[in-house]
């Protein structure tokens, strides 16, 4: 009886979120998956007939009649993946030492710092990216300072380059990398670090054999949280990237809003999702294996 009552209570408690996600996440996802296999309508929308050329266009089995294979889509996908990977690596390099530094601060300064890390969330992403635009443009803050100090004689062309996109994504993603990293570093058992040194391991050995494996769940967590939104990001390349900074997110946006080719946009979306799911699964299994949770 008690068990039955418990499951009823659980059901009632879970119903709202299940309903919400079902209607606003699962259902649209199914629609996108379905659309990606339908024929594009002449003026947007879809024709209800099976059509696999959406994927063919991207991966190369286009027949040249219905659709033409263009390697640019794979190139953009590859660019998105490498930009996202680069963002992960750079945020990790920036945040890892800082996480150690913050975990050693006293309580008051630690709170101040953690507040500062979350401070960007109080301001709109678009506003913050436009600030970067003002900093990076040829007559912007960065170039003005560099010209004034005499380090350069011509303004640097940073804006609307891949570098600007990666810089922007690193900037946006730093808090997402920092917080899981910090949690892992703060949880690190200081006594184990001492035990390692006590047993004759020098600082490098101790880092590789004790500190790194112990903080790996945080590194992987941060990497996943940064990688996923980075792959599909379209706001940063939209504001800071030019034609060479175009990412797959921008492509999806274009297909839905400008080109009005919903099935093709859906196919691109499904590919992003596939990539992200693969990355997620690989890192979760990897983390399980390393941290020793059988």
């Amino acid at each position: 009886m008690a068990v039955k009552r418990q499951s009823v209570v659980l059901g009632v408690l879970l119903a709202p979120v299940t309903l919400f996600l079902g209607v606003f996440f699962l259902l649209p996802l199914c629609i996108i998956a379905l659309f990606s296999l339908l024929t594009p309508g002449l003026y947007g929308g879809v024709e209800w007939s099976f059509y696999h050329w959406n994927y063919g266009r991207i991966f190369g089995w286009a027949d040249g009649i219905n659709e033409i294979f263009e390697p640019i889509y794979l190139q953009i996908l590859w660019r998105s993946l490498s930009f996202a990977a680069l963002t992960v690596v750079l945020t990790l390099i920036l945040c890892y030492p800082v996480a150690f530094w913050v975990s050693r601060l006293n309580d008051r300064w630690r709170l101040v710092f953690l507040f500062l890390i979350t401070l960007p969330f109080f301001c709109s992403l678009i506003v913050r990216l436009y600030a970067w635009l003002l900093i990076l443009k040829p007559t912007g803050l960065l170039n003005t300072i560099l010209l004034w100090t005499g380090l350069i004689s011509e303004p640097l062309e940073i804006l609307y380059t891949p570098a600007a996109v990666v810089l922007g994504m690193v900037y946006v993603m730093i808090p997402f990398m920092f917080l899981p990293l910090y949690a892992a570093v703060d949880n690190l058992d200081r006594a184990q670090v001492e035990a390692s040194m006590d047993l004759g391991a020098n600082r490098i050995q101790t880092f590789l054999k004790v500190i790194l494996p112990q903080t790996l769940p945080g590194i992987l967590g941060g990497a996943v949280i940064v990688f996923i939104p980075s792959v599909g990001n379209f706001v940063v390349p939209d504001v800071l990237g030019g034609a060479k900074g175009l990412m797959i997110g921008n492509l999806v946006e274009q297909q839905f809003l400008s080109s009005r080719n919903w099935p093709f946009g859906s196919a691109l979306s499904m590919i992003i999702m596939g990539v992200v799911l693969t990355v997620l699964m690989v890192s979760v299994t990897r983390a399980r294996k390393v941290s020793g949770h059988a």
Binding site: D189, A191, Q192, E194, A195, S196, M197, D198, L199, G200, A201, N202, Q205, T206, K209, V210, P213, Q214, V290, S291, G292
Partner: peptide, 30 residues
């Protein structure tokens, strides 16, 4: 790590991500 002295820590400070054997052999491993 240069002192010929070893310690048994109050909290034991065993390496949670290693097996018992690798814990015990750590000094020899490094």
């Amino acid at each position: 790590f240069r002192r010929p002295v070893n310690t048994v820590f109050q909290s034991y400070a065993l390496f949670g991500h290693m097996t018992v054997a690798r814990n015990v052999g750590y000094a020899l491993e490094v």
